[in-house]
């Protein structure tokens, strides 16, 4: 069963929930696009229905809600390490199924990779409640069906936004108190077919032909085309790499902080080791490294494809490089290589 809401009752629910939660959703920031007189659609805090932007895919993903671009790990005073406090409010995120699935992908890295859970990630991640936005049409560069990220059933509340008519399914009883309206039949729907279909490569075949795929000439093109700007990785909801930075405050050099900041395997400096050596100097090699992580080795490690098929990397590439096209090329190469 679902509950039908109008804008007023929806806003009222947000108001009630905002007492205990910070509420995030895709928003439109007027004039904040890179180009003049354009807007930036991204994730931000909201307080009413009109704040939510549904007509356009957000340039940045909701990952920064639980994994901020810059996150202080310690404050230093003399030789003391102090962990920053976080506020006790919960986190509600309105997101589409692809982005909701991306949180599960981040979980694998931060909570399951290696012997330890990342405490900074976990303390934010544990607060998250999934308010999933029904998405049945997607956008022109979406391919979530191909990556298997088109569905997300483990939601707390599911919403259908049909202009100003809002229907929701409250799965987590914890939120029942906030939503009141007419009870209606409601079955959440998910997108079953994107405009774009991508055949992902068979990872066993890659494993058997690893050198062939890694040394394939298809990557050479990207040494020429890619400019190593990192936009694809910044916009990607599943990219999770970071660097640590220690700083002291200019006005008080005895104090400072250690923080972690997003890093990108596409950008210079990612592999620099002491003494000046670095790896994957060619941009084509970086592209290979990134693409293989998204569609091959992550899956080998965790059993699920890293890429959720949101298509943001294709949307933001200033050089018009299509990740989707690269995936197809890899699949083709793998299939052909195997038949040889």
């Amino acid at each position: 069963m679902g509950i039908e809401l109008d804008v007023k009752s929806f806003d009222n629910a947000l108001k009630i929930l905002s007492k205990k939660y910070k509420i995030f959703a895709p928003v439109r920031l007027k004039g904040k696009g890179s180009f003049s007189d354009t807007d930036l659609v991204t994730y931000g805090e909201i307080s009413s229905y009109k704040d939510i932007e549904l007509s356009e895919k957000s340039r940045y993903s909701p990952k920064e809600v639980i994994y901020p671009i810059t996150q202080t790990l310690f404050y230093f005073t003399e030789d003391e390490y102090k962990e920053p406090e976080i506020d006790d409010k919960g986190i509600i995120v309105f997101l589409r199924p692809c982005d909701a699935n991306s949180y599960l992908k981040l979980d694998n890295i931060f909570l399951k990779n290696g012997p330890y859970e990342d405490n900074y990630y976990k303390r934010l991640r544990d607060k998250v409640k999934f308010f999933v936005i029904e998405c049945t049409k997607g956008f022109s560069t979406c391919f979530c069906v191909s990556t298997g990220s088109n569905k997300f059933l483990d939601y707390d509340v599911f919403f259908r936004f049909d202009n100003d008519k809002i229907t929701c399914d409250v799965k987590n009883d914890e939120f029942s108190y906030a939503f009141s309206g007419k009870e209606v039949e409601f079955t959440p729907e998910f997108i079953e077919k994107n405009e774009i279909e991508v055949k992902l490569p068979d990872i066993d075949k890659i494993s058997q032909n690893l050198e062939y795929v890694f040394n394939h000439e298809l990557w050479d093109e990207y040494t020429k085309r890619c400019i190593a700007c990192g936009r694809c990785t910044v916009s990607c909801p599943t990219c999770s790499c970071f660097s640590m930075q220690d700083i002291f405050y200019k006005d008080n050099p005895k104090c400072g902080e250690r923080r972690r900041v997003w890093a990108s395997c596409m950008v210079d400096g990612f592999t620099d080791v002491a003494g000046g050596h670095s790896y994957r100097q060619k941009y084509g090699e970086r592209m290979r490294f990134k693409v293989m992580h998204k569609i091959y080795d992550y899956k080998k490690r965790f059993g699920t494809t890293m890429c959720v098929g949101c298509g943001r990397c294709d949307d933001v590439c200033p050089e018009y490089i299509s990740f989707i096209k690269i995936v197809s090329k890899v699949t083709d190469a793998v299939d052909r290589g195997e038949s040889k």
Partner: peptide
């Protein structure tokens, strides 16, 4: 040039 919108208008 900014990939993260650290610089905005």
């Amino acid at each position: 040039k900014c990939p993260t919108s650290a610089w905005t208008r």
